[in-house]
């Protein structure tokens, strides 16, 4: 068998190559897996770098204080999600479908902040935010 001199350098290079390709691939997966919707919204949002301008809500008041909602709406929704699916808990005045009565545009309200802070919740890949 022909024996080529091999160096640890070569081995390290190979490992680095494998590692890099895994990194690139997984990044691609993450990007395509969860944020197709956000990327789309991104393209026609028009904020210019400052804090996002949110569309003014209709209606009197939110079901929770605005401050609390800003911080906790995601946990709130997620918690309720589990309870609703698994235990059948339905609070009609606080259902997700109700949000849109006041926050009428997903693009002008939800997406503004989500894009600004760079989160891409995938709830609305399936759930329809009523217009």
């Amino acid at each position: 068998m022909r024996s080529l001199q091999s160096h640890p350098v070569r081995f390290t290079l190979l490992l680095a190559l494998v590692w890099a390709s895994v990194l690139v691939l997984s990044h691609q997966v993450m990007a395509s897996g969860s944020s197709g919707h956000a990327a789309e919204a991104h393209s026609h949002s028009d904020y210019t770098g400052g804090p996002p301008e949110l569309e003014k809500a209709k209606g009197e008041a939110c079901i929770r204080p605005t401050d609390w909602m800003r911080r906790n709406h995601m946990d709130f929704l997620k918690h309720r999600r589990g309870q609703t699916v698994r235990e059948g808990l339905r609070i009609r005045s606080e259902s997700l479908l109700k949000c849109s009565e006041c926050h009428q545009s997903h693009e002008k309200f939800c997406d503004q902040c989500h894009n600004y802070v760079g989160v891409a919740p995938n709830c609305f890949e399936c759930h329809i935010y009523p217009k």
Binding site: M1, R2, S3, L4, Q5, S6
Partner: peptide, 8 residues
């Protein structure tokens, strides 16, 4: 040894 051409 794992240095041969065949191995790599």
């Amino acid at each position: 040894e794992g240095r041969s051409f065949g191995y790599w």
